[in-house]
Simulated assay, not measured.
Amino acid sequence: MNKKRAVPSLVKDPYLVEKRRNQMIRAAVRLFAEKGFHKTTTREIAKAAGFSIGTLYEYIETKEDVLYLVCEAIHKEVEERLREAINYSHTGAETLKSAIKGLIQVMDEMQDDVLLIYQEAKSLPNETMGYVLGREEEIAKHFEEIIRKGIEDGTITLEENLVKLMAENIMVLAEMWTFRRWALRKHYTLEEFTERQTSLLLKELQAKID
């Protein structure tokens, strides 16, 4: 994965940088969702964030910096909330079941944010875009760890060379609720979707749930 990019700031106070950038991120998420990245101006972001355009440029250099910060903040929240759903004190299969449910729940609650990343990340420079998209691989690694835990404790059956593929499958199946929600909601509730997808995945893994 490409190295995380440091966004230059004229302000050196870490507390103030974090505070102002969080204001920027919240404002930009709303504007990017409403208008798209290209139609949103930095002046609009500054106004929505509650400060001047001059102040905005003390904390970033370009509008692409704001988009990068938005994507990073969204991925960070997804990963933190997924971590909260993982309980490694259970068997691998039980841990996986709760983690899948947790990820789908996060995708439901953050669906507009997740969709924003896929719609707008292409506007980032190639190296930065590589890092942003690579963040999903980092999130998927949590599922690789859980699956390996299940293989070790005997509650999951899967060949080692398929672990990464299965982890990526879990990410895609969870994100399906975000990308295909307009169609899926006609036929399934979130609970039904979660139950069916989890059942399919655990069956493929021959998972043993007590």
Rank of each mutant, 00 (worst) to 15 (best):
D13M: 01
T62A: 03
L31Y: 03
T42M: 08
L165Q: 08
K164S: 15
S123C: 09
I139Q: 03
I86R: 15
V132Q: 02
V163A: 03
S52I: 11
A183N: 14
T178I: 04
R81Q: 14
A121T: 12
N161E: 10
L190A: 06
Q119W: 05
L124I: 09
D153Q: 09
E191H: 11
V114W: 12
D13I: 02
Q23P: 00
A33L: 13
G50P: 14
E168F: 13
V66A: 14
L67A: 04
Y188D: 07
R83S: 07
Y15S: 12
T95M: 12
A183T: 13
L165M: 10
R30V: 09
P125D: 08
S9N: 08
I86W: 03
K63I: 05
G36M: 03
K35D: 08
I104E: 11
I25F: 05
A183M: 12
E64K: 09
E94V: 09
G150W: 06
L133V: 07
S123T: 02
Y59I: 05
K76D: 15
Q105E: 14
L162I: 00
K39M: 12
E120R: 00
A33K: 15
H142I: 01
V66C: 10
K4D: 13
L10E: 01
I156M: 07
T40F: 05
V11G: 01
D65G: 05
P14E: 09
E58F: 05
S123N: 15
P8I: 12
E192V: 07
A140W: 02
E61L: 02
A140M: 09
V78T: 00
Y57I: 04
A121D: 05
M1E: 12
T157S: 14
E80T: 02
E72C: 08
T128P: 02
V114N: 05
Y59M: 02
R180M: 11
M1T: 07
V29F: 00
G154F: 06
K4Q: 13
S9K: 04
F193H: 04
D13T: 14
E58Y: 05
R81Y: 10
R196M: 11
Y68A: 08
Y57P: 09
L205Q: 02
R81W: 06
Q105D: 15
E127S: 10
F51Q: 03
K47E: 10
R26P: 04
G36K: 08
R30M: 13
H187N: 14
L116R: 08
Y188G: 00
E120S: 01
Y88N: 05
A33S: 15
Q206K: 13
L69M: 04
V11L: 07
E159M: 07
T41P: 08
Y131C: 10
E80K: 11
S89Q: 12
A140K: 15
T55R: 06
A207S: 07
V172H: 14
T42R: 04
I209N: 08
K4L: 10
R20K: 15
T198V: 14
E61T: 12
V106T: 14
D113W: 02
I151N: 04
L124G: 13
L165K: 12
R81K: 15
A33C: 04
A73W: 11
D153R: 12
T194M: 11
L82Y: 09
F179A: 02
I74L: 07
L158P: 06
L16Q: 11
L69V: 05
E94A: 02
V66K: 08
